[in-house]
Amino acid sequence: MTDNPQRHQEEIAAALRASRELGPEYDEAVAASLVERVDDTIEERVKHHVARRTGADEPRVGVASNTVRMVLALVCLGISIPITAIVASLIGGAMSVFMVWAGLIGFYLIAVLGLRR
């Protein structure tokens, strides 16, 4: 935001000069124009102040949720193979392998749903 008091003073002086040159029949129009400029300046300052207080001026740095989902999927796939091999060799049986995969899929779904919040 450019807040230059000298610029504002020059604008007011220019409006007063224009009012003198145009005559009294244009006083209301010049005054309305000046009031509009003051209102715009106040509105700009309020917006800037609110944005600064809410942190909207700070650039948001983050990772796209698609990237996070892809990394999470690759990690789940990467750990699923060794876990499946360990469970199959130690416990054995199709039901234990099914439980491992159900747990991994459940973990992935919960993580993805958590990212949406």
Rank of each mutant, 00 (worst) to 15 (best):
Arg17Gln: 05
Glu10Ser: 00
Gly23Val: 01
Glu44His: 04
His49Gln: 02
Asp27Gly: 06
Leu22Tyr: 06
Lys47Asp: 08
Pro24Gly: 01
Asp27Asn: 09
Ala56Trp: 15
Arg20Ala: 13
Gly23Phe: 09
His49Trp: 04
Lys47Asn: 05
Glu28Trp: 12
Val30Pro: 01
Arg53Asn: 07
Glu10Lys: 01
Glu58Gln: 08
Ile42Asn: 09
Arg53Ser: 04
Lys47Tyr: 08
Gln9Asn: 01
Glu25Gly: 02
Arg60Gly: 05
His8Pro: 09
Asp57Tyr: 07
Asp27Tyr: 10
His49Thr: 04
Arg60Glu: 09
Ser65Glu: 15
Gly55Met: 14
Glu44Ala: 14
Leu34Lys: 10
His48Leu: 00
Arg60Leu: 15
Arg17Val: 03
Ala18Thr: 11
Thr41Glu: 15
His48Asn: 12
Asp27Leu: 14
Asp39Gln: 09
Val63Thr: 12
Glu25Asp: 02
Val46Asn: 00
Tyr26Arg: 03
Val46Met: 06
Ile42His: 11
Gly62Cys: 11
His48Tyr: 06
Val35Cys: 07
Glu58His: 10
Ser33Gln: 04
His49Lys: 05
Val46Pro: 03
Ala64Lys: 15
Thr41Arg: 04
Leu22Phe: 13
Ala14Gln: 00
Glu43Gln: 14
Ala51Pro: 07
Pro24Asp: 02
Ile42Lys: 00
Arg53Lys: 10
Gly62Ser: 04
Gly55Ile: 11
His49Gly: 03
Pro59Ile: 02
Ala56Ser: 03
Arg53Cys: 10
Ser33Trp: 06
Val46Cys: 05
Ala51Phe: 11
Ala13Met: 07
Val30Ile: 08
Val46Arg: 11
Glu10Cys: 03
Asp40Val: 02
Pro24Ile: 00
Lys47His: 07
Ser19Gly: 13
Val30Met: 01
Gly23Ala: 01
Arg45Asn: 11
Ala51His: 10
Ala32Gln: 11
